[in-house]
Design a protein around this nucleic acid. Structure first.
Lengths: 186, 186
DNA sequence: TCCGGTAGTCAACGCTTGTTGGCCTACGCT
DNA sequence: AGCGTAGGCCAACAAGCGTTGACTACCGGA
């Protein structure tokens, strides 16, 4: 392993501040100056450690969805498990919100979001859906419902979506996801 | 009615260009200068006619979803009708895409999107769902699925979501929307 | 035919942005 | 103790932004 650098704390502070600003403001309005101010250092340090703004975003938007292996559990629960997992993941930190906010207006952000879902959600769906060639379409359907709810609840903050409690939300969404994954093609 | 002004053609050109740029770039990257260039006039004309950038966006994001009255048709078709209508509306022009792109990073855009769905989708759901007090939550659920698919298909351009054809898409989404509107609370 | 107001251009303003290079400081190894 | 170097700050840059005000051209009614 590489030896710990003296600057690791600063690098981490920058990354944390960057995630916060990207999540709150999106790509353009999250300025390097604001990120540096929040991290308590000079803007030029950001450039030194991450090259440029794009590089900073690339580093700040690295994420592991840590999706569970669905094959092991009773197939009629996978909808609920998946929805719960995503809601947890969305509320733990700002990374997914940032990814969504940036992906909508920034080419690189959209590409990153595409890659995350293809590489991490794709394999999971492949394991549980009836015909493997349908897996990508089913994954996209699941993504549409998950992303849509995240958009309504965490980004646009539509009142009823924010007010619904967790159980209610899962009770509504789980059957949808379940059907997208396991039902016969309609 | 107000008499036609000589400048109406210019005003319309500005609005058209603005919708295009907002839809393609979002709020910050859609510059007044670029909009003016696309409309073939000077940037200062935009200010003259719409006051400032916010005013321009307000004018460019006015939209009538023109949702059909669902009460009149057999209740088992309302899912399909609604999904089809939204897909049509999304593909006819850039306004909804612009609203979505701007709403994600801009406070005023988010408020506008909130208002559009509350005022136009709200009443429609009220007419078809079992208990009126559940209408807002059901409307939000429908919005989450519709917006999520629009996001995946028209904004993030996730491959499988783009490649699915219309009939397939409707076949998958219609039952979801149908259930959110008419099924008993789970 | 004159004349007022509308349509439009032009040049500039103040500000913020990403990014750069030079300079200082202080840690940690020998 | 001395010194190289990594960590950090400061000041400035060019470019682009929204916005403003002064100025010109021209159409239409009197």
């Amino acid at each position: 392993m590489t030896t710990a650098r003296r600057s690791d704390a600063t690098r981490a502070a920058i990354l944390e501040a960057a995630r916060e600003r990207f999540a709150a403001d999106g790509y353009e309005r999250a300025t390097i100056r604001a990120i540096a101010r929040e991290a308590g250092i000079d803007p030029s340090m950001v450039m030194r450690y991450y090259g440029n703004k794009e590089g900073l975003f690339a580093a700040a938007s690295e994420i592991d969805l840590a999706l569970p292996a669905l094959g092991a559990l009773p197939s009629r629960h996978i909808g609920a498990v998946l929805v719960n997992h995503f809601l947890d993941r969305w509320e733990r930190d700002d990374v997914l919100t940032g990814l969504l906010r940036v992906g909508v207006t920034n080419e690189a952000g959209a590409a990153r979001m595409q890659a995350v879902f293809e590489e991490q959600l794709g394999p999971v769906t492949l394991g549980v859906c009836p015909r493997p060639e349908e897996a990508p379409a089913r994954a996209a359907l699941v993504a549409s419902q998950i992303l849509g709810m995240a958009l309504a609840r965490y980004v646009l903050r539509l009142r009823p979506a924010v007010d619904m409690d967790r159980d209610e939300l899962v009770a509504w969404l789980a059957p949808t996801v379940q059907r997208y994954l396991t039902a016969e093609k309609p």
